[in-house]
Amino acid sequence: MTMPDIQPTVLVLTALPLEYAAVRAHVEEREERVHRDGTRVETGRLPGTSWHVALAELGMGAERAGVLTTQLIDWLRPEAALFVGVAGSLKADVGIGDVVVGTQVYGIHGGKQTPEGFLVRPKALPGSHALEQAARSAVRDMPGVRAHFMPIATGEVVLADAGSGIARFVRRNYNDAGAIEMEGSGVLQAAHLNGRLNALVIRGISDRADAGKHAADASGSQRRAAEQAAAVTVAVLHRHRPRKGAGDSAEAPRGAAYGGDHIDFRGGTFHGPVTGKSGEAPPNPHSHTH
């Protein structure tokens, strides 16, 4: 049997509705798909590129993001994954409206509590070199974007007090981090465990992770930051090309190797645990549980 053409897919992940909306505005011919466990994505075309985008809104938190990213990778077999959204600045020269591209992401809560105090056990996950290079190239032609390439800190905390203990902890132990957010480490961990998946975290700065956070958010800074991050993401995907022969080479048989969970976006035919618009999953006696 002839394998269908498999379209190169990029998974674009967000946590908040306004982040999702900022990316969604760039995606055409959208169609909603539902995983058998209920997770929803919109798939569509990114004009001017070979990419099909699968866009998901995961909610907040690194653990949740990691679990759902793993599920989506296993389902959709993307070639790349980007987590796109807003973050708080940790540096004086990283301003509201700037974009931070994560050269690596720190999970800040790893460590050991001892009688002598808390001993930090840093965990750092690098972003994709190829995607980072595409981002560096893209922002050179974006005069309206001020971009920074630096580490990003991920913590299960909304930081709204620059003088707090957690703020001092981050400055002391992750001093080169330019921004703090809540999901990046979970996404990169899922991509890392997958093996060959390129992944990158792109964050627009919506506040300074201090007491002015609420006022900044109320001023519309979150929406602006999300739109800037989405614009950089789209520019990255215009620069970053799918792997050579993604539709008919070594990447193409991945669906067959994993039990036939391949996707033909052009024909609208989904093989594996995928539901159509009716919301009813086709029978798949060989499918596995996520």
Rank of each mutant, 00 (worst) to 15 (best):
V170K: 09
P151R: 03
L46I: 06
G38V: 12
R64M: 11
A147D: 04
V101Q: 00
L131A: 08
R33F: 09
G38H: 12
G38S: 11
R40I: 06
S164E: 03
L72P: 03
P115I: 02
R168M: 08
Q133E: 14
L125S: 07
A160C: 10
F169A: 01
T114G: 06
V139R: 03
A80L: 06
R121L: 13
W51Y: 10
P151Y: 09
A81E: 01
S128W: 10
A134E: 07
G127R: 01
L55G: 05
L55F: 12
T69H: 08
L119T: 07
L46A: 07
Q71H: 15
A56W: 13
A134L: 10
T43F: 06
P47W: 02
L125T: 14
E42H: 12
T69N: 07
L55K: 04
H35L: 15
E132C: 12
I108F: 10
G88S: 03
A138K: 05
R40V: 11
T103Y: 11
R172S: 15
D161T: 04
G107M: 03
Y174I: 03
I166M: 15
D98E: 03
Y106I: 02
A135Y: 10
G97I: 03
G97D: 06
A54P: 11
V99F: 12
H35G: 05
L90S: 01
A147F: 11
T49V: 08
A81D: 04
S89M: 01
K123M: 13
A138D: 02
G66M: 07
V34K: 11
P122V: 04
V158G: 00
V120I: 08
G95F: 03
L55N: 04
G44V: 05
G48C: 07
P78L: 07
V53S: 04
T70A: 15
L76I: 04
S50W: 01
S89Y: 02
V41M: 01
V157T: 12
V67W: 02
R77I: 10
T69P: 10
G110R: 11
P143D: 05
A92G: 10
G38P: 12
D37L: 15
V67C: 02
A62S: 15
H129D: 11
I73K: 04
Q71M: 12
H148I: 10
E32Y: 02
R146G: 04
H109M: 12
E63P: 00
D98F: 09
Q113R: 13
V41E: 00
A167G: 08
A130K: 13
A153Q: 05
L58S: 05
L46Q: 03
D141V: 04
I73Q: 05
G102W: 06
A135M: 09
R136E: 14
